[in-house]
Amino acid sequence: MRVVAKFGGTSLGSGDRINRAADSIAAAVEDGHEITVVASAMGATTDKLLEEITFDVDDADRAQIVSMGERTSVRMLKAALSARGVDARFFEPGSDDWPVITDEHGEVDVETTRERAREIASNLDLEVAVVTGFLAQAHDGSITTLGRGGSDTTAVMLGNYMDADEVVIVTDVEGVMTGDPNVVEGARNVGEISVDELRNLSFRGAEVVAPSALSYKDSNLDVRVVHYQHGDLLSGGTSIEGEFRNLVDMREKPLACLTVAGRAIRNQPGVFQSLSAALGNNDVNIDAVASGMDTITFYVDADEAEFAENILHREVVEQDALSSVTVDEPLAVVRVTGGDLPNRPGIISEIVSPLAEARIDIHDVITSATSVALFVDWDDREDTLETTQELL
């Protein structure tokens, strides 16, 4: 099996942890697996280097300085593997065979990087490749970086381009947890999670796998997260399933928009819970929710509009904080989902502006970390779908 194993800074934070990492790599090699290692800077080295830059420095010099953490890590790991009788070679920017190349815009040059990654992969039966994470190199030889979480990106990208069977992210957490174990009691490991779920969690604060890395995962590449104390690269942790697709999807059935108004609803604890519970207890499925200072809007099947309106009206009558409920139907929803949406400044404008030019009235826009939902008149659904499909 061909495996790319990424060791985070905490995993390499001391000599003992480097020994533990080398032991797990050597064991996998002994079992006949082809291993590429992606190494982050030891501990908080990169942050410490950045803190010491108290003078004016250009981007090129800054990249050279921060690269020293990863450059040290690959040398340490290579030496530890050699001490165990494992043939290994480290790769860093400036090496003749360095794989990760960026173009003039700082974006990964896919064709060149894939070609170089495959060249390294062709020798994995002879040696372990130990690659600096986070770093890249422009065509002119200057050092660039892949941004925050760049070592994760390096690992999954190389896993993809090397036709690896699996990428293992070795970190300081027991895979993906049901909650932050430092905050909630009884947090436990999640055995499996989808790419879509994890990307949304990552963009909302879960520091497990960098969101940028997951855009390189496809259905043929397994990705797993394990704790550095686990000691086995090939088992345990959390498996990340599926792949993140760029798509435009339209709901086939029409929706009704039910808006409940009330003074300063947002500041009234329990109002949202009581309204959504009332619908749920009566088996009314909520497709989406939007809120303002004085309103809460529920989108439900148009077929259930009258039933849902009566349910919400009872809540309005019973609660002094609420004043009225109104219904607008039929509406359509078109959702734009894309792995690179969060990394594209102005993406909402890119989506909405063509619809405005087409004279399509947008009733509502609801965004999540990785998708944009557009609510329009039912009669405008086909034009909205066609216009937004041209974006991806």
Rank of each mutant, 00 (worst) to 15 (best):
L50E: 14
D172V: 11
N160I: 04
R251L: 12
L124V: 05
A155N: 06
E34R: 15
V209L: 11
E309L: 12
D283I: 07
H139A: 14
G191T: 14
S215Y: 10
G133E: 08
V130C: 10
F272E: 13
E52S: 15
R114P: 04
D96G: 07
K217E: 07
L158E: 04
E304L: 15
R188P: 02
G94M: 03
D96Q: 05
A129W: 03
E386T: 10
A39S: 12
T259R: 09
L279N: 08
A373I: 00
V38N: 07
E304G: 01
S276R: 00
V190W: 09
G43L: 03
L322E: 05
R75H: 07
S239D: 06
D59V: 11
Q319F: 02
S142G: 01
A264Q: 14
D383C: 01
G175Q: 09
N19P: 03
T144Q: 03
F298D: 09
D140Q: 05
D109G: 03
A373K: 14
T10R: 12
P211A: 11
I193G: 10
T144Y: 01
G147F: 00
L392G: 12
H227Y: 13
E382V: 13
Y228N: 11
A41V: 01
V372N: 09
P345N: 02
S95I: 00
S151K: 06
N182A: 10
A138K: 01
S324K: 14
A187Q: 12
A60C: 00
D109A: 14
G150D: 04
P211I: 10
L12V: 08
V131Q: 05
Q64Y: 06
V225N: 02
P93E: 01
G346R: 04
V325P: 08
R224M: 02
M42Y: 02
D287C: 02
F91C: 05
A358F: 03
T154N: 05
I65M: 15
A138H: 01
I360V: 15
N19Y: 06
L233T: 09
R20H: 13
A164F: 11
F91D: 01
A356P: 05
T370L: 10
V167R: 09
F203S: 02
E306F: 03
H363Y: 11
K6G: 10
F298L: 11
S14M: 03
R148E: 03
M177G: 05
G8P: 01
D103P: 01
T259F: 00
G133R: 06
P342G: 13
E241R: 15
L385K: 11
H105G: 01
E166C: 07
Q137D: 00
R245A: 15
E197W: 10
L233V: 08
G346Y: 06
V156S: 02
G292V: 07
S291L: 03
Q64A: 13
V284E: 03
G338I: 06
L50Y: 08
A41S: 04
S40L: 09
G32M: 10
A288K: 04
V289Y: 03
N123T: 12
E243V: 00
G141I: 02
L135P: 01
S95C: 14
Q319G: 05
E127V: 08
D340N: 07
H313D: 15
T178N: 07
S142I: 00
P345H: 02
D379M: 06
A213C: 04
V260L: 05
N267G: 08
D140L: 04
